[in-house]
């Protein structure tokens, strides 16, 4: 997503990432990736739980988010979503760009 961030922004969109990580634990790894979009931490699983994305014991002894992508319009209405059934397979930036156009 980072590699296509300029194209995404030129289409009037911003990227926001969310995971269940603690800021303390994820900071180094995320900074190493060089993301310049907000990477949000939901360690208490408030948002993840509310949206029905909770994957209990998705990692050993750890509750995490299942992968998901939502595209929201300017009023935060969901215009597109991708809920993969296989966590190895991620949404590709090209798909996102096509949906934003």
């Amino acid at each position: 997503m980072q590699s296509r961030i300029d194209e995404i922004r030129s289409l009037g969109a911003e990227v926001v990432a969310v995971s269940a990580d603690n800021p303390e634990e994820s900071r180094e790894a995320i900074e190493a990736q060089g993301y310049d979009f907000p990477v949000l931490c939901d360690p208490n699983l408030e948002l993840i739980g509310k949206l029905g994305l909770l994957h209990e014991d998705g990692l050993p002894d750890t509750d995490i988010s299942r992968p998901a992508v939502f595209i929201l319009d300017e009023q935060r209405d969901v215009t597109w979503r991708e809920l993969t059934d296989n966590w190895r397979v991620r949404v590709r930036p090209e798909t996102i760009l096509a949906e934003l156009r």
Partner: peptide, 19 residues
């Protein structure tokens, strides 16, 4: 705040995390 992006579209991506 998510609302800070109101007026823009948002690609909201949920990751499994533990990068």
């Amino acid at each position: 705040d998510l609302a800070s992006f109101d007026g823009r579209k948002v690609v909201l991506v949920f990751y499994r995390g533990y990068w």
